[in-house]
Design a protein around this nucleic acid. Structure first.
Length: 418
RNA sequence: GUGGAUGUAGUUCAAUGGCAGAGCACCGGAUUGUGGUUCCGGGCGUUGCGGGUUCGAGUCCCGUCAUCCACCCCA
């Protein structure tokens, strides 16, 4: 084998591809029932789009972005996430001026240079929802309810929703200041990672798994105590709507989003059994992003989910996917004249929308019957010298063993009847 | 980017430093007109790749690549 797939990437081949299509179909259906429409953007954009939107100091920008320059020296990046491109498209198509609000869903590959492990890949596939155009907390609840309905529709069990509010530009900064003041006296006792977090993202100290850091954060201030009146009200209303829509959640004040543009509501859907990479979807409100990208200030909320992790979770829970496609009819022909005769009824059957399978490489009659059986076809259409003379193939019901010589029309009717 | 585990047939796994094997799957056959069971037959695998030690390496050593686990980060 001379060529190998790049690290952290994977092929989606049958029968796995059928599972992916099924999950995508369900997502499309659920998104449509909430009025969301599909948007597709390029998989690469100007690198600056992500640098500005995600935040220069974010891990995504600092070390995970696939950057490249083209023949004219322009710097692009393979998209590490889906929201910034959607917002770019929104602004570039003047939707900030022409639409009261926009409801988008998307799916496609994202790219991050990260060390692969189960549930984490360098090219991975996300689905996402973006609602742009209102600060009404109803929409926070709507996008969350959509994701929950999607997961339930697939039959996923044992997942939980955690929500938080990270506040707006003002109260968020106040809170981080308070956090730094709280940890400042014990700075030397924090682990090395947390000492870095202290400057870059002090909220993450609340998430650290090192026991000593867990001790040190007892009594640390909570973002929820630092929300200003508007943010407080927004969070309460979003929670109320969730309750009214029967969406179960727990408030987790230590939820942090990795990208800089999030405001107010932040949330994650988590499946514990997945291991370290257990967040299957995450998102929140990003009221400042559109203006930051150059559009008119427009509030928005959305989320993204990972197909790999979702499918991993579904499989580990033994959830059934639609059965693989089995032929309706398996065509068996004996002898040269039968083989050429068989083409005509076979094509007619296919044209009628019936799945007919045929394997000319199987030599003996017996091996053809065996193949018909293994294919799980409902019927075998058997054609030999007699059938050619009669111009009536034999249709055999493979589950009860009955068989009968029938005209082409009779065959099609019979198969369509059940 | 850091630490650890593992790489043998399509797959799941064997093989004290001494002839690379088995189950399952797959293919063919047991009178080219009747399928699931059964029986018979079918494997020359760069033992992930490259070096080294040795009379001899799947096995020991070094490097490398990949996967997995944890950290980190996140979907």
């Amino acid at each position: 084998m001379n060529y190998k797939i790049p690290r952290g990437t994977f092929d989606i081949i049958p029968p796995q591809s059928a599972k992916w299509n099924y999950v995508k179909d369900v997502f499309r259906r659920v998104a449509s029932s909430f009025g969301y429409e599909e948007i597709t953007t390029p998989i690469f954009e100007m690198a600056e789009l992500f640098e500005r939107s995600s935040g220069e100091s974010s891990d995504v920008v600092q070390k995970e972005m696939y950057r490249f320059t083209d023949q004219k020296g322009r710097t692009f990046a393979l998209r590490p996430e889906g929201t910034a491109p959607v917002v770019r498209a929104f602004v570039e198509n003047h939707l900030d001026k022409t639409a009261a609000h926009s409801k988008f869903y998307y799916m496609g590959p994202m790219f991050r240079y990260d060390r692969p492990q189960a549930g984490r890949y360098r090219q991975f596939y996300q689905y996402g929802i973006e609602f742009i155009g209102s600060n009404n907390p109803y929409y926070d609840a709507e996008v969350i309810a959509l994701e929950q309905m999607f997961l339930k529709e697939l039959g996923l069990k044992d997942f939980r929703l955690e929500i938080n509010s990270v506040g707006c530009g003002n109260c968020s900064k106040e809170y981080e200041k308070a956090l730094r003041e709280f940890f400042q006296p014990v700075f030397d006792k924090l682990c090395e990672d947390c000492q870095n977090r202290y400057e870059n993202n002090p909220r993450r100290i609340l998430d650290c798994k090192v026991p000593s850091c867990k001790e040190l954060r007892h009594g640390a201030p909570s973002q929820l105590d630092y929300l200003d009146d508007d943010c407080q009200d927004h969070f309460e209303k979003a929670r109320l709507y969730l309750e009214q829509m029967d969406v179960d959640y727990v408030v987790n004040p230590s939820i942090v989003r990795g990208l800089d543009y999030y405001t107010n509501t932040a949330f994650e859907f988590i499946v514990d059994s997945l291991g370290a990479q257990n967040t299957i979807a995450g998102g929140g409100r990003y009221n400042g992003l559109i203006e930051q990208i150059g559009g008119r200030a427009t509030p928005a909320v959305g989320f993204a989910g990972g197909f790999e992790r979702l499918i991993l979770a579904l499989e580990s829970q033994g959830i059934s996917f639609p059965e693989e496609l089995a032929p309706d009819v398996y065509v068996i022909a004996m002898g040269e004249s039968a083989e050429s005769y068989a083409m005509r009824p076979m094509q007619a059957i296919r044209k009628a929308g019936i799945y007919a399978e045929y394997n000319p490489d199987k030599s003996s009659f017996k091996s053809q019957m065996k193949a018909a059986d293994q294919s799980k076809a409902r019927y075998a259409m058997i054609i030999g010298e007699e059938e050619v003379t009669l111009d009536k193939p034999m249709l055999k019901n493979l589950s009860d063993g009955t068989q009968e010589n029938l005209s082409l029309n009779q065959i099609i009717d019979r198969i369509k009847d059940n």
